[in-house]
Simulated scan of single mutants.
Amino acid sequence: MIAWTDRRALDLFAIEHPLLLAPMAGSGGSALAIAVAHAGGLGSLPCASISLQTIEAEVRLFRSTVPGSRINLNFFAHTPATPTTEDTQRWLGRLAPYFAEFGVDVAALPAAGGRAPFDAQMCSLVESLRPEVVSFHFGLPADALLDRVKATGAIVLASATTVIEGRWLESRGCDAVIAQGYEAGGHRGNFLTDDMATQPGVFALVPQLVDALKVPVIAAGGIVDGRGMAAALCLGASAVQLGTAFLLSDEATSVTAHRNALRTARDDNTAVTNVLTGRPARGVVNRVMRELGLLSEDALPFPLAGGPLTPLRAATEPDGLGDFQPLWSGQSGALVREAAAAQIVQDVVEQAARLLRLP
């Protein structure tokens, strides 16, 4: 057993290694959470894009497979926006050439959505399931809902992309703060700023958050091996959260187009974009990002921008192409390996322990 020197995260989550699985919609389910928990980390389930019934079934499977292990249920805390007719027509106008190319009937476009914010129904499910950990992205839900979550005894986490956001989260009772650096794949967790140009990287953000907060800080973004984990722990992080590292794992549910993109990931071919969902998120650059621009003022607000892309994705995905879909990846995607998730965890923690010269 590795003698980790900072036990705050280990004791908080009752885990063997200071490693958390990032909740990844579309790529991570109970199989991946179970594998990470078996290997000594904290398993997580992305709950913002699945039904209440699916959440319940996934939690039941997790608990029956790894009894005694804690689980993190992750939710979004964004405030939905209602676009005007002009907003909608402007976005559809930007996509019109693609609709024509692939023969999409604009009148038959599916309803947009798919990323619901934490609400009373989700809160009731948390009260019923009583997960040991509940985490939020895009800030925190309303105080009344958050109080109900805390009343269950759940440990509460949330992502911060700046020190100001971290202080805000701590002041509202978060038990730990995830320091999401600009390198991170997937959606930015920003909620007090929309300025992507000033977002700090993880190794600049972590020590500043550690100095500013009393609660444990969890480093996230660009960490896929033991070198990154050791560096984050040296800077004061109590644990790391890994997502991209598991995207090519045996247990990941990443679709073929996503896996193909990850196999070609480089240090310079991911970018932050809002044209896929309406909110800034990092992924491998694809056709729609190149042609519409990475950050477009025409994109509908989250999560509505992605709805009209659905038929375009359906037309190209069967060929293994990811031209119109999220290909989320952090900046260290080129370092990702194809292996069982438990092996990935073992390799990461053992390399980190060697570098830190831990017994």
Rank of each mutant, 00 (worst) to 15 (best):
A3C: 06
A3S: 11
W4R: 00
T5R: 14
D6T: 05
R8F: 02
R8V: 13
L10G: 00
L12H: 01
F13E: 05
H17D: 08
L21S: 14
G26C: 07
A33L: 03
A33S: 06
A33H: 02
A35I: 00
H38T: 12
G43R: 04
S44R: 10
P46M: 15
I50T: 14
Q53I: 04
V59K: 10
S64V: 05
V66P: 07
V66H: 10
P83H: 03
Q89F: 06
R90Q: 09
R94K: 15
L95S: 13
E101W: 01
G103N: 03
G103R: 07
G103V: 05
A111D: 03
G114C: 01
D119V: 13
C123S: 09
S124A: 15
V126F: 05
V126Q: 02
E132V: 01
S135L: 13
G139K: 08
D143E: 11
A144N: 08
D147S: 13
G153D: 12
A160L: 03
T162K: 10
E170R: 14
E170Q: 15
E170C: 13
G186A: 12
R188A: 03
T193E: 07
D195W: 06
L205G: 06
P207G: 03
L209S: 01
L209D: 03
A220T: 14
G222I: 10
L247W: 10
A252R: 14
V272F: 06
T277C: 06
N286I: 08
R287T: 13
M289C: 11
S296R: 10
G307H: 03
R313P: 04
T316V: 03
L321Y: 03
Q325N: 07
W328P: 05
A334M: 08
R337H: 08
D347Y: 08
V349C: 04
V349Q: 02
Q351T: 05
